[in-house]
Design a protein around this nucleic acid. Structure first.
Lengths: 219, 219
DNA sequence: ATTTATTTTTAGATTTGTCTAAATTTATTT
DNA sequence: AAATAAATTTAGACAAATCTAAAAATAAAT
């Protein structure tokens, strides 16, 4: 089945929200999509008709199995293109998201399969987010946010959840990126801030607010 | 200035037609665009307003200088993507056009500049069509792949699109490189293979698969 | 349990790009 | 030059995707 760009964006938006909340409501999606509630309602009717989501008036909605499959295929495209843009074209990781938002709507399945092979079938994009395979399966590793990481335990930065420009700029300054080895050397109980050693490099202090948006894995 | 996909496609269509005819007429463009004359008229009004084309009712139309610049930037994108799809992703050249029709509308200028560099600033796409540079300047010689070269016609090897190690090794063995004078002496219809004379040197047999990756020019 | 507030949906308008059918302009033929 | 044909444009309609403003349903508060 074929979808418009707007439909695809809505499907992706629902997927994103239902990851956290289970059932999604109209206002939340309107906010996520930077549009109005009335427009969302219109789109919901269309997507229900196409059996992309289960939707009862006034009662919230969520994707059907088919809807989920479509969402994952769009996310797969998005993340493969992000990988291409940073690793092959040398883009700064802060810039790739907007371009991938366009590229993810290119329709050819064969293109994505060949791109995947060309990139060496990566499992994670440059932000550390997992890239679903062609069946929609998502690779998993146990991730912990920095606040949960035991003190002195060596770990690898795997992703960053708050991708605001300010956040990315700060991490760039500290030379913290995906794959950076890291270790907590002190935990200040007063304000929850952490002293963090970027291995083979300097040490810095991160606030709790920042730390809980940085994810790592170990072993 | 920003354009919709439909506007961009019409600009490209006008450019293509005016290459041959100078002034373009409504029906011709309608045919080119697989649409109706009335729809073309609507679009012409819009593009005239945006100063993309000179247009007098009932009297035909052609692109302004600005219109030409835009057309060339779209053609540039199209051909760079075609190059990417064949040379980097290994697509069959027959399949790349449709995909490039979508990719050419991705808007980022930085993307195209980086893609161009990544591909090594190629001058011709895999069909031998010239790729305009970022100023809209078009390289002049036309390239043909060996399958398209008329028999007995003397030509010069100008580029090789499939740069796999095996390919390069084979070419090295036959002493075929950029600038090598070459001539087709026989075309075996059975399997599409060619008997090729490397001038001032030996003769060899090249499979169709190899031949279509070797580009030449003549005169 | 009413009233008030919030959320969601409907109703109707707008924009973009397309269409058909009719009218108009230009070109061709007799 | 008048009649006919072809090309082009206008007028009006339609679908998609959005919006505003008002109505309806649900949730929260007194």
């Amino acid at each position: 089945m074929k979808f418009t760009i707007s439909e695809e964006n809505h499907i992706k938006g629902v997927y994103h929200l239902q990851q956290q909340t289970g059932l999604v409501n109209t206002n939340a999606l309107a906010c996520e999509m930077q549009t109005k509630a009335a427009s969302v309602t219109d789109m919901l009717k269309k997507l229900k008709l196409k059996k992309i989501l289960q939707y009862e008036k006034y009662k919230g909605f969520k994707l059907t199995e088919m809807g989920k499959k479509i969402a994952l295929s769009i996310i797969r495209k998005h993340r493969l293109w992000e990988y291409f843009l940073t690793v092959k074209l040398g883009f700064d990781w802060a810039k790739v998201h907007a371009i991938a938002e366009e590229l993810e709507h290119i329709s050819s399945e064969e293109l994505i399969q060949k791109l995947d092979d060309f990139l060496g079938n990566p499992s994670f994009d440059p932000h550390g987010d997992p890239i679903p395979d062609s069946f929609g399966k998502i690779p998993t590793i146990k991730q912990y946010n920095l606040m949960q990481l035991p003190i002195k335990k060596k770990a690898i930065v795997s992703s960053v959840s708050n991708q605001s420009a300010q956040m990315l700029e700060m991490l760039k300054h500290y030379k913290i990126g995906i794959g950076t080895p890291i270790q907590i050397t002190k935990h200040f109980l007063f304000d929850g801030s952490l002293e963090v050693k970027i291995l083979k490099n300097t040490t810095c202090i991160l606030s709790e607010q920042v730390a809980k948006n940085i994810f790592v894995y170990y072993e």
